[in-house]
Design a protein around this nucleic acid. Structure first.
Lengths: 349, 349
DNA sequence: CTGAAAGCGCTAACAC
DNA sequence: GTGTTAGCGCTTTCAG
């Protein structure tokens, strides 16, 4: 590791001058040619500042604390982390990650992050829910990811659940479906109620009846499969909007048993049903993507903004958020869901 | 943040004495009662050392760099991270994570980690493969996770692929299956060849014929499904060993179309088929778990050992690695696969 | 046994 | 314009 001292010696100036130049505080304070000389040797020697030493004076480390629960079980954490990571690293920040499964260890972990001097916190959840920001975070820059802060104590970013239901149903309608079933969950989640509201809104708007017999909320296993079988026998829908992967999977099984082909005989829009269909191609098989990457990205950007990093504003929004895809695609299409950002404009775009 | 200076002032001693005591270097150097007094005020004030300041002198930060590619797409990264995390945090270490998708950014990321002064590196891959440890890591303590270092430049930990095939097949045999199919992948992976060898070994050992007609390597989509359908029509196996999630899924579809029930009519052992069956319960539906968590844990432990932390030896091995489960379970069972650790005894146990 | 002093790499007043 | 100085929190000789 090469230090300012060495640059100073090499260039024949003092350390403070080097410091001024390296921090771009040399406007009108250091003679331009001195500046240039310093920059050149810094370049030549491959100087990189030592963040630790710097933090001792500035109490800013360039590290963001990333707190998430149950990282282990879901694929989504990775995507969120990656998004946050990308935003962070393009501004020279770095992520200090901890996962907290046992709830009591959470405050220990936060302690640890604080000792390491993180500049702020990303508090991520694995599914959209109401959360209380942990007390130790309330006095520090924090952003909630994939959830909503109950008392609006800090910015947060989460999927627009209503729009998910609306877009998915709309997509099925536009593909020609007329009897569209909603296969939801029996769990009491904001996502469940809001997506269903979106589903109904789309039906109404299209002048289609909102037939309660087409709504089916199921749990797991045989019981769920039985319910789906009953639904199909009773109402023979031509399109399905599925709450998640496992729900899509029941449709798959029921359809196979009836020798119905997804995409040919019936259409299906599932939320995040990546796993089930990762390697399947079929028309009229549609995935609503939960934009975990984008949420992570947005949150990190917002956090750096909160911290006071003026460069945060210059960060581009990742291009992956596209408008609704064409409906007649031969390949499975992906609907990118919108986000709701609290405390600022809608996802800032 | 409360500092040594404050403790010194409060106790009426000098900072250096406090330092000695807090680092447990006070044996026979500091009067026991002074030590006790210092410890008491430290306790009372809730003193925690500042790792940044310490690292300035010792050039040890207590941070481990975690490098992984394609974190975004797979659920496994999370599990590995969590394992590493848990091992690390129980010794007071913390994880600095970076993900490198673009290959050229990798060295930048490593640079960044180095500037932050990480004590060593975990280099994780998303599937078992041969890797070359990146050059900048070769001179630093490093451990390869879920892959094998081509030139044995550093310790590594990876699943025992042969044993996966053997255990899975053995499990099917023990459950009464006699015509066991292997549904593999057409990709050229070490996992594919080794698992298949294990499959054959188990058959031979049980005196069952190794019928090539029962081995079926497929790619994706309709083509794969067709192959599976053909396989079932041709040989009607009573048990399946599936390479991964998507392969299991094809069996599911083919079975449903024949009104066969997994668990009742046919048995299935799939590797890591968590996603497909996460919420399914059925007897004779078995998952071979790839112990990502354990690999992360082992690797972090090994790394801290490499770094020279003597406490690393005291870390317990996580209990989750259990022996083969009973075969007549009513619930789906999980087979925990064994690990192969290079450069030390087999997974240290 | 304990404290004074130097220094890790860097920043920020304040002189010159 | 540039250098001197002090100090962030901690460790580590070295005196006493």
């Amino acid at each position: 590791m090469i230090t300012m001292k060495q640059i100073a010696a090499e260039t024949g100036v003092s350390v403070s001058t080097v410091s001024l130049v390296m921090n771009n505080r040399d406007q009108g304070r250091v003679k331009p040619e001195t500046s240039r000389a310093i920059r050149r040797t810094a370049e030549r020697l491959g100087y990189r500042p030592n963040p630790m030493a710097r933090s001792l004076r500035t109490s800013r480390t360039g590290m963001l604390g990333f707190i998430s629960e149950e990282v282990a079980t879901t694929p989504y954490a990775g995507a969120i982390i990656k998004g946050a990571q990308d935003a962070a690293s393009s501004l020279g920040y770095v992520l200090l990650t901890v996962s907290t499964d046992g709830s009591d260890r959470e405050s220990d972990q936060i302690q640890a992050l604080n000792r390491y001097g993180v500049d702020g916190f990303l508090y991520a959840k694995m599914y959209d829910q109401m959360v209380d920001l942990p007390a130790p975070l309330r006095s520090r820059p924090s952003v909630v990811v994939n959830a909503q802060e109950a008392r609006n104590r800090c910015p947060s970013i989460a999927p627009d659940e209503f729009l998910i239901g609306y877009d998915a149903t709309r997509h099925l309608i536009d593909s020609g479906c007329r009897r569209i079933a909603y296969l939801g969950t029996t769990q009491d989640l904001p996502a469940q109620t809001d997506r269903r509201r979106g589903y109904q809104a789309a039906l109404l708007e299209a002048g289609l009846p909102d037939d309660p017999g087409l709504v089916c909320n199921v749990g797991f296993n045989q019981e769920a499969l039985d319910a789906v079988n009953a639904l199909m026998d009773r109402t023979s829908p031509d399109g399905f909007f599925c709450f998640n992967d496992s729900r899509s999977f029941y449709i798959y099984q029921a359809a196979a048993a009836r020798h119905l082909s997804i995409g040919r005989d019936i259409s299906l829009v599932g939320v995040d049903n990546h796993q089930v269909m990762a390697e399947t191609t079929a028309p009229r098989l549609t995935t609503v993507e939960l934009p975990h990457y984008e949420m992570g990205y947005w949150a990190a950007r917002k956090l750096m903004d909160l911290i006071g990093d003026s460069d945060a504003a210059t960060l581009p929004w990742p291009e992956t958020l596209a408008p609704l895809p064409p409906i007649d695609a031969e390949e499975p299409v992906r609907i990118h869901c919108q986000l709701i950002a609290k405390d600022s404009t809608r996802a800032d775009r």
